[in-house]
C-alpha cells in the first residue's frame, strides 16, 4: 500500500510542478493516439456502416473478421508495421520508421477493427429503425449508410472512444515502430515500460496514474459533448 501512496503523491508532484518533459510526453501521446483515432474513424466508420447496411457476398465473413481483429495483439501490429516501414521493407524509402507518423499508422491499424465493429453494431441497430423510411425516400444503400453515420454521430463517439482507449493504452506497437526515442517517440506507455525496467516502480506507477487521468479527462469531455448533443438533437 505504501508504494501506491508514494506513487499518488509523486503523480501529484509531477503534475503540480508542470514538468516540461512530462508535458511533452503527454502531448505526444495525445497527438499520436488522437490522430490514430481520427484516422481510424474516417476509415472504420464508413466501413462499419457499409457492413451494417450492405448486401454483398462475404459480408458475414468480414463481420466475423472485424470482430475477431478487435483483439489484435499490438506487438503483432507493431512488428508488421516495422517490417513494412523498415528500410529493408516495401515502404522503407519514406523513412517513417521511428517517427510519430509510424506510431500513428500502427495504432490506426490496431483500432480500425474496433471502430468498424462497434460502428457496425450501432449503425445496424439504427438501420432497423430507419430502413423503411430511407428506402421509401429513395436512398441507395450507400447513401443510407452515410445518413445513418451522420445521424448516429453522437452514439458513434462511443466506438471512437473505445478505439482511443485502446490506442493510448497500448505499448507493444509504439515501442517497436517508435523505438521509444527520448524526445521524439517517447510516449506515456513506453515511458512507463522504461521506468518499470529501470526498477523505478513508484515513478512508473505515478506515470500510469497520470495516463489514467488523461484518458478519463478525454472520456469526460466526450461524455459531456454527447450529453449536450443529445439534449439538443434528441
Amino acid at each position: 500500500m505504501g508504494e501506491i501512496t508514494t506513487s499518488l503523491m509523486l503523480a501529484g508532484e509531477l503534475v503540480a510542478s508542470g514538468d516540461a518533459r512530462l508535458a511533452s510526453i503527454v502531448t505526444l501521446s495525445l497527438q499520436v493516439s488522437l490522430s490514430a483515432t481520427l484516422l481510424a474513424c474516417l476509415i472504420g466508420m464508413p466501413l462499419g456502416a457499409l457492413l451494417a447496411v450492405g448486401r454483398f457476398p462475404g459480408r458475414h465473413t468480414l463481420i466475423v473478421l472485424f470482430n475477431g481483429l478487435m483483439g489484435l495483439p499490438p506487438v503483432v501490429v507493431g512488428l508488421l508495421v516495422y517490417l513494412l516501414l523498415s528500410r529493408a521493407g516495401p515502404l522503407g524509402q519514406f523513412g517513417l520508421l521511428f517517427t510519430p507518423a509510424a506510431m500513428i499508422i500502427a495504432q490506426t491499424i490496431l483500432i480500425v477493427p474496433i471502430v468498424a465493429a462497434l460502428a457496425r453494431q450501432s449503425v445496424e441497430d439504427a438501420w432497423r429503425e430507419y430502413r423503411e423510411q430511407l428506402r421509401s425516400l429513395g436512398a441507395s444503400r450507400l447513401r443510407a449508410a452515410m445518413t445513418l453515420l451522420w445521424d448516429g454521430r453522437f452514439s458513434l463517439t462511443t466506438s471512437g472512444l473505445a478505439g482511443f482507449g485502446r490506442a493510448i493504452a497500448e505499448v507493444g506497437a509504439v515501442m517497436i515502430v517508435g523505438g521509444n526515442i527520448d524526445g521524439v517517440t517517447r510516449v506515456m506507455t513506453t515511458t512507463i515500460a522504461l521506468e518499470t525496467s529501470k526498477g523505478d516502480l513508484p515513478l512508473a506507477l505515478a506515470l500510469g496514474l497520470i495516463l489514467i487521468a488523461v484518458v478519463l479527462a478525454v472520456n469526460t469531455a466526450a461524455f459531456m459533448l454527447r450529453q449536450w448533443a443529445e439534449q439538443r438533437w434528441g
Binding site: 429503425e129 423510411q133 430511407l134 425516400l137 429513395g138 436512398a139 445518413t147 445521424d151 453522437f154 438533437w233
Partner: peptide, 19 residues
C-alpha cells in the same frame, strides 16, 4: 415518424436532396 437528428427543415430537405 423517423426523424433524423437535425432540424425540421433539414429533415424535409433530405428527401429532396436524395432526388
Amino acid at each position: 415518424p423517423v426523424m433524423l437528428r437535425t432540424t425540421a427543415l433539414a429533415n424535409v430537405e433530405y428527401g429532396l436532396k436524395l432526388r
